[in-house]
C-alpha cells in the first residue's frame, strides 16, 4: 500500500526527515512511536503530500506522490482519512458538518439531508449522538478527538492515519477510543497508521511498530520484536528509563 524509499525532507535549512525507508502492506496496522519532535507527524503529513520532500520516493498504491501538484494529489488524498494531532476541526462548521465534509467533497450529488443522516450515523458510532448541532468549541477534548475520528473515517477510505488519537485523555477514555478504532478497523478493513506516545495503549491496537527519532526510523517490525530490539535508544524509550542516550 505504502512504499517509501530514502525520503529526505528539510524545512528552511533544517533537515527534519533523514532517509526514511518504509513498507506498509495493505490491511496492516502500524503504530508509530518516538520522542516528541522526532518527526512522526511530519512523516505522515509528507505521505499525504502536505509537505514536499527534498528527495526520495513515496508510492501509494503504486502511484508516486512526490512531485505531484495539488490537483494531481486529490485522487491520492481521497484514499486517506486523517485525524490531525490537534484535531483540526473546522471551527466555522457545526459538528455534523465537520463529519459530513469529506463525504460531501467525495460525492457532490448527495443532498444535505442524506449527508446529515450519514453524519449522524457516524456520530452515534463514536458515542456522540446528540452533539451534532454543537460547535467544535463547545466540546471537551475527548469529544473533539471523537469528532476528528468520525471525520477521518467518514469516507471509509482504505488508509487511515491517526495522529495522537489519545493524547491528553484519561485512561478510561483512552481505552474506549482504542476499542472504537478497532471496531472501525474491523468494519472497514482499512490499513491503519496510528501515532501515539502511549506504548501500552497502542500495543492493544496495533500489530506492528516503528520508532521514529530525529527524522529516522530506528526500529520497525512486528510488535513482539520491539521488546528485543538492541538499540540503546529504543531500549530506553520503550521501558521509560531515565538513564540512556535520550
Amino acid at each position: 500500500m505504502i512504499h517509501v524509499r530514502d525520503l529526505h525532507l528539510s524545512i528552511g535549512d533544517r533537515p527534519l526527515l533523514k532517509g526514511i525507508d518504509l513498507q506498509v502492506e495493505r490491511g496492516s496496522v502500524w503504530g508509530i512511536i518516538g520522542p516528541p519532535g522526532g518527526g512522526k507527524s511530519l512523516l505522515v503529513k509528507t505521505l499525504c503530500g502536505l509537505f514536499t520532500p527534498d528527495r526520495g520516493s513515496i508510492r501509494i498504491d503504486g502511484v508516486e506522490v512526490c512531485g505531484l501538484d495539488e490537483p494531481a494529489l486529490v485522487p491520492i488524498r481521497r484514499k486517506i482519512g486523517m485525524l490531525f494531532q490537534n484535531n483540526a476541526l473546522f471551527d466555522f462548521m457545526k459538528v455534523w458538518e465537520n463529519v459530513a465534509f469529506p463525504l460531501a467533497r467525495l460525492k457532490p450529488d448527495l443532498d444535505e439531508a442524506a449527508l446529515r443522516e450519514r453524519a449522524l450515523m457516524r456520530l452515534r458510532e463514536v458515542g456522540l449522538a446528540g452533539s451534532e448541532d454543537k460547535w467544535p468549541s463547545e466540546l471537551s477534548g475527548g469529544m473533539k478527538k471523537r469528532v476528528g475520528i468520525a471525520r477521518a473515517t467518514m469516507t471509509e477510505s482504505p488508509l487511515v492515519i491517526y495522529d495522537e488519537p489519545t493524547a491528553g485523555l484519561d485512561p478510561v477514555t483512552t481505552s474506549k477510543i482504542y476499542d472504537l478504532l478497532e471496531k472501525i478497523r474491523q468494519s472497514t478493513g482499512a490499513t491503519v497508521l496510528a501515532i501515539s506516545s502511549d506504548i501500552q495503549g497502542l500495543s492493544t491496537f496495533v500489530k506492528n511498530m516503528m520508532l521514529v527519532h530525529d527524522g529516522q526510523i530506528l526500529f520497525k517490525g512486528p510488535l513482539p520484536a520491539l521488546q528485543e530490539c538492541e538499540d540503546p535508544l529504543v531500549h530506553q524509550f520503550i521501558r521509560g528509563l531515565s538513564e540512556g542516550p535520550l
Binding site: E70, V74, M82, N86, A88, L89, F90, L106
Partner: peptide, 14 residues
Amino acid sequence: VTEQVDALRMTGVD
C-alpha cells in the same frame, strides 16, 4: 496554525 487548512487540502479543497 491549527492545521484546518491542511485538513481542507486533505479533502481535495484548494
